[in-house]
């Protein structure tokens, strides 16, 4: 009995791994659009959205899917030093080792000399951390049609970010990831649990419970993960405590949801 809650709890650890990817309606149309646009020459793709909307997950899934058919490289943490960035790309993409400093002009020479039919795709996560200068170089690089970039970016102040200087040019294709609706959130939670064979736990999430969760997390995947991790931890604690009161396990009470939200700081009390 105990292990059900532990297993369910671990489903909601905040880990990005393509094998845990869940096909969601809204996301899958975007995903298809994205795969199509990868085939188009020149276009660079900008994936943006609030933290916790699944950008990194999306990028990882894309990486996993593309890697069987083409050259694709994923950088999950940004390489902030310019020279270091070129050196890493030169080595990974063109198998060219470089010991000293490498500047943009030198790097472009390597790129030109190694041009192939199969255009490599470079996926950059957390691109809001790159400097404007480096972003401009990335754009120039993609203009040469020798490397294709897909980048993700936290949406900062409302939509202002897309009005920002680098994203004006037409070569950017922008795709926004959004928080889940209540319906999508239910699918997300249940699929996630069922993938881990936690069928009983999946059945606990009635529409009422999911609506309550949605109200608290706004459908943000990361916040939902945090909340549900705590929720199952609570069930686990109730079960193993000596004075375990009757806790209903056929559906989830608002009380348990609210207690989890208080513990994770999603509600202040």
């Amino acid at each position: 009995m105990n292990s059900i809650f532990v297993n369910s709890k671990n489903v909601f650890l905040d880990i990005v791994n393509a094998k845990d990817y869940i096909q969601l309606d809204q996301v899958s149309t975007i995903y298809q659009a994205l795969k199509d646009s990868i085939k188009k020459p020149l276009k660079m793709i900008l994936l943006y959205g609030k933290p916790g909307t699944g950008k990194s997950m999306f990028l990882n899934k894309l990486y996993k899917d593309l890697s069987s058919t083409q050259k694709v490289y994923l950088y999950q943490t940004p390489i902030l030093d310019e020279s270091e960035f070129y050196k890493t790309l030169a080595q990974d993409l063109f198998e060219t080792k470089y010991s000293g400093e490498l500047n943009f002009t030198q790097f472009m020479k390597i790129v030109e000399s190694k041009k192939t039919e199969d255009i490599p795709v470079v996926l950059l996560d957390e691109a809001q951390l790159y400097s404007e200068v480096l972003m401009e170089k990335i754009r120039l690089l993609s203009d040469t049609r020798t490397v294709k970039f897909v980048i993700t970016l936290h949406k900062t102040e409302k939509e202002d970010i897309i009005a920002k200087e680098h994203f004006q040019t037409r070569i950017w294709e922008t795709i926004e990831l959004e928080n889940a609706s209540s319906i999508e959130l239910k699918i997300y939670i249940q699929k996630k649990l069922m993938k881990a064979n936690c069928f009983d736990s999946a059945n606990m999430f009635t529409n009422k419970a999911v609506n309550k969760i949605h109200k608290i997390t706004n459908g943000n995947y990361r916040d939902t993960n945090k909340l549900l991790y705590t929720l199952f931890e609570l069930y686990e604690s109730y079960e193993s405590s000596n004075h375990h009161r009757a806790i209903r396990t056929n559906n989830i009470s608002n009380k348990i949801i609210e207690m989890s939200a208080i513990h994770t700081g999603l509600i202040d009390a």
């Binding site: 939509e159 202002d160 897309i162 009005a163 994203f167 004006q168 040019t169 037409r170 950017w172 922008t174």
Partner: peptide, 8 residues
Amino acid sequence: NNPALSLF
């Protein structure tokens, strides 16, 4: 003519 701008 970037649609992101007109949407903004």
